[in-house]
Design a protein around this nucleic acid. Structure first.
Length: 572
RNA sequence: GGUCCUGUGGUGCAGUUUGGAGUGCACGCCGGCCUGUCAAGCCGGAGGUCGCGGGUUCAAAUCCCGUCAGGACCGCCA
């Protein structure tokens, strides 16, 4: 139907007879005998000169045949890739008419998102989404190539799986053949990929759809795509290298530049310096240790296990109102309070300055390298809480937009194996119960010094977004049993919950390790989007609805009966 | 489950603080004019459940209560 794409034509094509198909992006009429139509397809836009009488309106679908020609002198449009030329139409066929679109398709208008989702087929025509979908396809393709290069093969795993009690809430699918029983949709292919290892598929990967029935966020949808990978006979370093290659290849495919650095940082260092296990290292404002400065302080609020602060360059300009807001925000995060100090020519301006000795003020200023005009924000609390609050505050005050600062990848390693205790006093696994403890910490594990035990688990962070995580898995039976017993999972319960995996481990399980990272998040950052809905063709709203199809919908009684289901009346 | 923000012709906004006639801006739409525009221009026109319900008031887009939808975040996401 067409010989060329609209956006591909250039001055080289002058003189050629071409046939183009596309949508009317805009028309400019000059009376009976002249009109300009900007014809748009996925490749871009070109100006078509048509007879003024033609009734060609916005978003009509046209087939245009005509000759490519230079535009007359002084009428070139530099802002258009095809701006030096135009197509002189000899024949225009309306393939499909269109009602006026429900919202403008130009890039200038920030349209209500529900409206965009309800008419997603129109929204998808806009350059922004066209570009984002291309970025996504490029990333998918680059990742597949990169994994293939490293000897991984793509294996598909089922969507209808058994529900396990771990992790997120499952989406479930009722069984027709066995009423009252349910499949679960996979939260990840975790178990299956480990079974692949036992099955001798020594390098598995999959760009897998995962589903978790948890509340949605800017970086979270019910369903999302992961690069899921697992390899046998490899170390943590090997896995980091595999994933680094895949992610670097994806970034290079999109930006044209291969990111060089994938630095590593221990979980402890990340917490102490950035107050986060996913530090955004695009900017400074690092947490400064101040506990020694106030070791002998008379100021009650600083008589805490840990005092830290951040320095906001130029922050002394913030109004009292804004500082009060920040204090409230911190309290909302669970802080006992927030101490602010403005660094001024004649000293520290702060409600609490009078409680601090001259030595303390001087030590504070030098430790924080404070300069006139800075704002110092201090929190005193338990170590972990101090770091967490300041980490959130740092992001609140300093985090650049997604499009700024380049790509800063970071491997966070040496996570603790357990993060605190649950209500019943059992330690909680920081990753999952198959995570291998650090070899150097096996003695501490044996000795019961649980919270000091590191794991061979690792996260990949990009500009403060957690892209994904992985671990070396336990393949030694006695260690697995030790972990289960620490977690308070008895042999019977373990068998019930993970029976088929444990059974499989009896038949020759190779040492293995793996990783999974969120493709949507990677694509969003590479596309310069703050929200993964912008890189998903058909996303859902924050309440999990799809304005396009109206999902979720009710099903009729006959259908319910067939599945052995009855819907309870809504409770108050 | 919680906190905060938003909802006004087809679209994007202003108007809400301090109640007084559906008032305004830009785009789009419809009609007319126009042979080099490119966010074309000029003239004219149509288009409203101020999300919904209730309350206060002589009077509500505006104040109060509730509710729905959307968004950001907390909880949640091993």
């Amino acid at each position: 139907m067409r010989t060329d794409r609209c956006g591909d034509l250039r001055s080289d094509d002058v003189g050629r007879q071409v046939t183009l198909c596309g949508w009317v992006a805009r028309r400019r009429e000059h009376g009976e005998h002249l009109a300009f139509v900007d014809l748009r397809d996925r490749s871009g836009i070109i100006q078509v000169v048509v007879d003024g009488a033609a009734d060609l309106r916005s978003e009509y679908v046209l087939q245009v045949t005509g000759q490519v020609r230079e535009r007359p002198a002084d009428t070139a449009n530099d802002s258009l890739a095809t701006g030096a030329i135009e197509v002189d139409a000899s024949e225009v066929t309306i393939l499909s008419a269109s009602e006026p679109p429900p919202f403008p398709l130009d890039e200038r208008t920030d349209v209500d998102e529900v409206l965009r989702l309800r008419h997603r087929y129109v929204d998808l025509r806009r350059p922004r989404l066209q570009r984002n979908l291309e970025v996504r396809a490029t990333v998918n393709s680059a990742v597949r190539t990169a994994m293939g290069e490293q000897g991984f093969i793509e294996v598909e795993t089922p969507m209808l799986v058994a529900s396990t009690p771990e992790g997120a809430r499952d989406f479930v699918v009722p069984s027709r053949k066995e009423p009252g029983s349910f499949y679960a949709l996979p939260q990840s292919p975790q178990i299956f990929k480990q079974l692949c290892m036992i099955g001798g598929v020594d390098r598995y990967y999959q760009i897998a759809r995962c589903l978790r029935d948890e509340d949605l966020r800017a970086d979270r949808q019910f369903e999302f795509m992961q690069l899921d990978a697992e390899a046998s006979f490899v170390s943590q370093d090997d896995v980091l290298a595999f994933i680094t290659h895949a992610v670097a290849s994806a970034a290079e495919a999109v930006t044209g530049e291969r990111p060089a650095d994938f630095p590593r940082m221990s979980w402890h260092e990340a917490r102490d310096r950035y107050g986060s296990d996913k530090p955004d290292i695009r900017f400074g404002m690092e947490l400064v240790e101040l506990t020694p400065v106030f070791a002998d302080t008379d100021f009650r609020a600083f008589q805490a296990p840990c005092v830290k602060g951040i320095r906001v360059p130029g922050g002394a300009e913030l109004s009292r109102n804004r500082l009060d807001d920040l204090t409230d925000t911190c309290k909302g995060w669970g802080a006992k309070g927030l101490v602010w100090m403005k660094v001024e020519a004649d000293g520290l301006n702060s409600p609490v300055a009078k409680f601090l000795s001259d030595d303390e003020q001087a030590a504070l200023r030098s430790t924080m390298e404070a300069e006139e005009g800075d704002l110092l924000l201090l929190v005193a609390d338990e170590h972990h809480n101090t770091c967490r609050i300041l980490g959130l505050l740092r992001l609140e005050l300093g985090r650049p937009p997604v499009t700024e600062g380049g790509l800063h990848f970071l491997w966070v390693v040496d996570f603790p194996l357990f993060e605190g205790l649950d209500e019943t006093g059992n330690p909680m696994p920081a990753h999952h119960p198959f995570t291998m403890p650090h070899e150097d910490d096996l003695e501490a594990l044996e000795a019961g010094d649980l919270l000091s035990v590191r794991s061979q688990a690792y996260d990949l962070v990009l500009n403060g977004w957690e892209l994904g995580s992985g671990s070396v898995r336990i393949h030694r039976r006695e260690i697995q049993q030790k972990i289960f017993s620490i977690l308070g999972i008895g042999a019977e319960e373990a068998q019930e919950r993970f029976g088929f995996l444990l059974d499989a481990f009896r038949y020759g399980a190779p040492p293995h390790a793996g990783f999974a990272f969120g493709m949507d998040r990677l694509v969003a950052i590479l596309a310069g989007e703050e929200n993964i809905r912008e890189v998903i063709a058909y996303p859902k709203t924050q309440s999990g609805a799809d304005p396009l199809t109206s999902a979720p919908t009710q099903i009729d009684d006959r259908h319910l009966e067939e599945l052995g289901l009855r819907v309870l009346p809504r409770s108050e």
